[in-house]
Simulated assay, not measured.
Amino acid sequence: MTLLTDFGNKIRLDEPLAQHTWLKLGGPAQMFAEPESVEELQALVQAADAEEIPVRLLGGGSNLLIRDEGVSGLVIRLAGDVLSSVSVEGNIVHAGGAALLSHVISQSVSAGLAGLESLVGIPGTIGGAVRGNAGGRHGEIGEVVRSVEVMTTRGEVFVRSGDELTFEYRFSSINELVILSVELDLKRGDVEELTRRMRQLWITKKASQPFSFQSAGCIFKNPRGLSAGSLIEQSGLKGTRIGGAEVSDRHANFIVTHAGATSADVLNLIELIQSRVRERHGIDLEVEIKIW
């Protein structure tokens, strides 16, 4: 294989993926690479495309469940300083796609820019947040996105902006392989007031969500006008456990994992929740996390 020949020293075979996700579950990647530059990333993607090898991009791993059998093809993880820079120019925040969302938020608030503070406590990268239009009751990140630089599965790079970007609840029109960078258009605010609001929201979230356990954030999308967590709780599922996977007793839209848990346990628990909510409420819950 040309990919292994040309990038043999950069690719690891049968790399355990569990260590790269928040749930700490799942099998290995057939091939795994952590490029050290955008140029190297592009070369890897182009080589894989030439050989018709499927490629997946692994971000922060906070919203991802890897199946026990693992993933075929090439998994690329952006690590270190690659695409992780954050800078502020006036009201515009420029962030590499691999920058942690928490870092982008803190940099924005420190610069006296409002619009991201309500996202405090959401894990993962800015790229993942934009792709899934992360947010909550106080707002979504798509509201402040001005442009997005992307790379396709062929290694082509271009910028999407304006009408080329669509954001809906936990959805964006961005379907390219990599989000290289984003530009966020924020508003001026008072640093002390923004910091106070951010801390208040963080305390509220920390009190209601199982941050101390291994979890992947909300498992299901909220049906229009309803709360998935409330529907699950009303179905009597809080604390329900299959193997090492359990519906959190703090927030029913979280699944926490215990020693010995498998991805199959989580998937079986997801199916049980969907079935029970469908029986009790006539509503089909849609999974929010990504499953490979």
Rank of each mutant, 00 (worst) to 15 (best):
G97H: 02
E89K: 14
E143K: 12
V38K: 02
D163P: 09
V71F: 01
Y169F: 15
R170I: 04
A98Y: 00
I76Q: 13
I122V: 12
V159K: 14
E140L: 11
V277K: 13
A264Y: 10
L3V: 15
A261H: 06
R199G: 12
L186E: 12
G244M: 07
L65R: 01
V45W: 08
F220G: 02
P123S: 12
A33S: 08
P54D: 13
Q209Y: 05
N63A: 04
G59F: 12
S84Q: 11
G135R: 11
L23R: 05
G73L: 06
K290W: 11
D81W: 07
G121S: 07
L57M: 15
D190M: 04
I270N: 09
V178E: 04
T5K: 14
S230R: 14
W22I: 00
V109F: 03
R131G: 00
S87G: 03
V38P: 00
H258W: 11
K187N: 11
R250G: 06
L100N: 01
V86Y: 01
Q200K: 09
D81I: 00
V287E: 00
E36V: 09
M198Q: 10
V104L: 03
R197Q: 13
V159M: 10
K221Q: 06
P16E: 08
K24T: 08
E36N: 05
R160G: 00
L184S: 05
V120I: 14
E193Q: 08
F211K: 07
L194C: 05
E40R: 00
F213K: 11
R241P: 04
E149K: 12
I76W: 15
S230Y: 12
